[in-house]
Structures are given as structure tokens and as C-alpha cells.
Simulated scan of single mutants.
Amino acid sequence: MQAVDLLNIITAQAAGDATSGLMGMLPIILMFVILYFLMIRPQMKRQKEHRNLVAGLSKGDEVITSGGLLGKVTKVGDAYITIEVAELADKPVEVVMQRTAVSNVLPKGTIKSL
């Protein structure tokens, strides 16, 4: 009879330890869920929007680069674009940049209005 009681006590303690172990891990799991929704998910959304912006670049778009240059796209390649940033003696001043350096596409006519 005592062996059965001892077995029930050990089984109850093991079940209690498993439950308390799960409850101890709950705050850490909750922190990771909050971290995902507050930091990781918005960053992934911004990366996706930037990827779509860079993929949609075409000749004639007016852009701002991450370095602050404002110009008009004149040539588009796979990895690089050429941007006209000014005119000097009726010749365009062009800069070759990586496509990923573009941070924003402006509405048409923005450069002339400046």
C-alpha cells in the first residue's frame, strides 16, 4: 500500500514540476511575441516596401537617394542606375549609383518646382 502512495506522490510532484516549468517560461515566450509584433514585423514590412520601390524604378523617375542626392533617373540596369543631378554648360551631370541607394520616388515635376 505504501508503494502505491509513494508512486502517486512522485507522479504528482513530476506533474507539478512540469506545470511550474511551463509557467516559468511563459514570460519569456510572451516577450518574444511582443518583440515580434513591435519590432521584427514592421521592419520586414518596410524592407518589402523598399524592395518593391527599387524594383519599380524606371527611366524618368525623380528620386531621392539615401545620401541626399535629388535627381532624375536616366538609365536603369540590373544593379545600378544613372541619375542626372544637374546641367553644366548644357551637358547633364550624371552619377551612377546602386539601385538600393534610392530611398524615395518623388512625384513628376518636383525637381522643376524647386
Rank of each mutant, 00 (worst) to 15 (best):
1 M>W: 00
2 Q>M: 15
3 A>W: 12
3 A>Y: 14
4 V>H: 09
4 V>A: 14
4 V>Y: 04
4 V>C: 12
5 D>H: 12
6 L>V: 07
7 L>D: 12
8 N>H: 05
9 I>D: 08
9 I>K: 15
11 T>V: 10
12 A>R: 07
13 Q>N: 10
14 A>T: 11
15 A>P: 03
16 G>F: 12
17 D>L: 15
17 D>P: 02
18 A>P: 05
19 T>I: 15
20 S>P: 09
20 S>G: 10
20 S>N: 14
22 L>R: 14
22 L>W: 08
23 M>G: 12
23 M>N: 11
25 M>F: 05
27 P>M: 00
27 P>T: 01
28 I>K: 00
29 I>E: 00
30 L>A: 01
30 L>T: 08
30 L>G: 06
31 M>C: 07
32 F>Q: 00
32 F>K: 03
33 V>M: 09
34 I>D: 13
35 L>W: 07
35 L>V: 09
37 F>L: 14
37 F>I: 14
38 L>K: 11
39 M>L: 14
40 I>R: 01
41 R>S: 10
42 P>Q: 05
42 P>H: 04
43 Q>D: 02
44 M>L: 13
45 K>N: 07
45 K>L: 09
45 K>S: 10
45 K>P: 00
45 K>V: 09
46 R>A: 13
46 R>G: 05
46 R>M: 10
47 Q>E: 12
47 Q>T: 13
49 E>W: 01
49 E>A: 13
49 E>R: 11
53 L>N: 09
53 L>D: 10
53 L>V: 02
54 V>S: 02
54 V>T: 12
55 A>T: 15
56 G>N: 12
56 G>M: 06
56 G>Y: 07
58 S>R: 14
59 K>G: 04
60 G>C: 08
61 D>M: 06
62 E>G: 06
64 I>D: 05
64 I>V: 13
65 T>G: 01
66 S>C: 00
66 S>E: 07
68 G>S: 00
70 L>V: 10
70 L>F: 02
73 V>Y: 04
74 T>N: 12
75 K>E: 15
75 K>H: 11
77 G>D: 05
77 G>N: 07
77 G>H: 04
78 D>P: 00
78 D>W: 00
78 D>E: 05
79 A>H: 04
80 Y>T: 15
81 I>H: 06
82 T>Q: 13
83 I>R: 02
83 I>F: 03
84 E>M: 15
84 E>N: 13
84 E>V: 12
85 V>T: 08
87 E>H: 04
87 E>W: 08
87 E>Q: 03
90 D>R: 03
93 V>E: 05
93 V>S: 02
94 E>W: 10
95 V>L: 10
96 V>W: 09
97 M>L: 11
97 M>W: 04
100 T>V: 14
100 T>M: 13
100 T>K: 15
100 T>H: 13
100 T>D: 13
101 A>Q: 03
101 A>G: 01
101 A>N: 06
103 S>Q: 09
103 S>F: 05
103 S>A: 10
104 N>V: 04
104 N>G: 01
104 N>A: 08
104 N>W: 03
105 V>P: 00
105 V>G: 06
106 L>N: 05
107 P>G: 03
107 P>Y: 01
108 K>T: 08
108 K>W: 02
110 T>D: 03
110 T>Y: 10
110 T>C: 02
110 T>E: 04
111 I>S: 04
111 I>H: 00
112 K>I: 08
112 K>Q: 06
113 S>P: 05
114 L>N: 08
